[in-house]
C-alpha cells in the first residue's frame, strides 16, 4: 500500500492523524527551522517527544521537517534541530539546504534523510546527485512535474519518491521563490512563511472588499463576496499588452490541489508515499482528510476505483486542480 504522509501542526493534530489512519505524520519544531513557521503552530522538544511516542506506540512514523535555509551566522539553531530530531528518535528528517544536509549526513550517519520539496530536485540527475552525495533515502518531488515525468524519474532513480496529493498548491518551484519577500520582506526560504498574515490588510472601499499583501493589492471583490486570503501567486492582476491585455489570475486561480483521482496512476508511476499539505490546518480537518485518503490508498491497493466526492466538503467550495500532474496545466 502507498504510504500516507499527513500534516500535524499541533500535538492534537498529530494524534488525530494517527488515530485516523496516517501511516506517517510530519511536523516541525516551533521556530524558523521549518517552512510552516506560523504563530501558535508546531512542537516544543517535549511535545515532539510525546508525539513521537504516541505515533510509535500505534505503528506510525514521525518525520521532522527542518526545511528552511539556515541563516548565515546562525546555523547553530538548525544544527540543534537536526541533532534533537535524531535524539528524539524521529523516523527521518526532511531537509532542503545542502549545507545542512551535509552536516546531518556527517554528524548523524544513521539518521534517515528525506529531501524536502523545498530543495526542488526536479529531475533524476538532481535526485541521484543528492542520493549519491548525502545518502538521501526519499525525495519529495516538486509540484512542477507531470505523472509521465514522475514515472520516468522513478525508472532512473533508486530512492523513494513522495508526492503532494492534497492541499495548498505552489505554482512556482518551491524553495526557489522570493515573491513573498519581494512584497513583505519575509520568505519561505528564510523565514518559513509565504504571504504572511502579519503583512495582510483587509479594507472596504467603494463597495469592494480589498486584500493587500504589504503595499500591493492582491484581491478586490464586490461587497457580499468573500475576499480570498492574499496569497501572492493566487492574486488578481493586470498585464497590459497590445491586443493581449489580461486581467485575472495571471499565475494561478485561488485553487487547491486535489490529485485523488490520480492516485492509481501515481501508484503505477512507482510513487512510494502520498503527502497531504496543511500543517496550519485544524485537527478536525486533518482527521477528515486522513480518513478519506486512507480509504483511497486502500482502494488503490486493491485495484478498486477511487471513492468519489470524499473531499468535496473540505475544499470549502474552492475549485480544485490536479496541477502540474496533468501536462496541460502548464
Amino acid at each position: 500500500m502507498m504510504e500516507l504522509v499527513c500534516p500535524a501542526g499541533t500535538p492534537a493534530a498529530l494524534r488525530a492523524a494517527v488515530d485516523a489512519g496516517a501511516h506517517t505524520v510530519y511536523c516541525g519544531f516551533a521556530d524558523e527551522t521549518n517552512a510552516r513557521n506560523f504563530p501558535g503552530l508546531n512542537f516544543s522538544r517535549e511535545e515532539m517527544a510525546q508525539g513521537i511516542a504516541y505515533a510509535h506506540a500505534r505503528g506510525a512514523k514521525v518525520l521532522i521537517a527542518i526545511n528552511t535555509f539556515p541563516r548565515a551566522g546562525d546555523q547553530a539553531l538548525w544544527h540543534r534541530a537536526v541533532s534533537d530530531a535524531a535524539g528524539l528518535d524521529a523516523d527521518a528528517v526532511i531537509l532542503a539546504d545542502p549545507g545542512l544536509i551535509a552536516h546531518a549526513a556527517q554528524t548523524h550517519p544513521h539518521l534517515r534523510l528525506h529531501l524536502s520539496v523545498q530543495a526542488a530536485a526536479a529531475n533524476p540527475d538532481a535526485i541521484n546527485f543528492h542520493a549519491r552525495t548525502f545518502g538521501i533515502r526519499r525525495v519529495v518531488l516538486p509540484r512542477v512535474l507531470s505523472v509521465e515525468e514522475i514515472t520516468a524519474i522513478n525508472r532512473e532513480i533508486d530512492i523513494e519518491t513522495e508526492v503532494f496529493v492534497f492541499g495548498g498548491l505552489c505554482v512556482m518551484a518551491e524553495g526557489r521563490c522570493s515573491l513573498s519577500s519581494y512584497a513583505t520582506g519575509l520568505s519561505p526560504n528564510m523565514n518559513g512563511v509565504c504571504s504572511p498574515a502579519s503583512h495582510v490588510a483587509y479594507a472596504d472601499t467603494g463597495g469592494n472588499h480589498e486584500a493587500r499583501l504589504g503595499e500591493f493589492l492582491i484581491h478586490r471583490t464586490p461587497k457580499g463576496m468573500p475576499v480570498p486570503y492574499p496569497t501572492l501567486c493566487k492574486g488578481c492582476f493586470t498585464s497590459p499588452g497590445d491586443g493581449s491585455s489580461q486581467t485575472g489570475h495571471i499565475f494561478e486561480d485561488p485553487v487547491s490541489l486535489d490529485a485523488t483521482r490520480l492516485i492509481p496512476a501515481l501508484q503505477k508511476a512507482g510513487v512510494t508515499a502520498l503527502k497531504i499539505e496543511g500543517r496550519q490546518r485544524s485537527r478536525a480537518y486533518v482527521a477528515q482528510v486522513v480518513r478519506a485518503f486512507r480509504a483511497a490508498v486502500e482502494a488503490a491497493d486493491q485495484g478498486a476505483p477511487m471513492p468519489e466526492g470524499l473531499l468535496a466538503r473540505l475544499t470549502e467550495g474552492q475549485a480544485a486542480t490536479t496541477g502540474a500532474y496533468a501536462k496541460t496545466w502548464r
Partner: peptide, 21 residues
Amino acid sequence: RAPLAISGRCYHARLHDRAKD
C-alpha cells in the same frame, strides 16, 4: 530585474491562452 520565481508553467503562454507546449 531580479529573478524571483521559476515554474513548470509558462505565464507568457497563459497570458495568450496557450499551453506551454
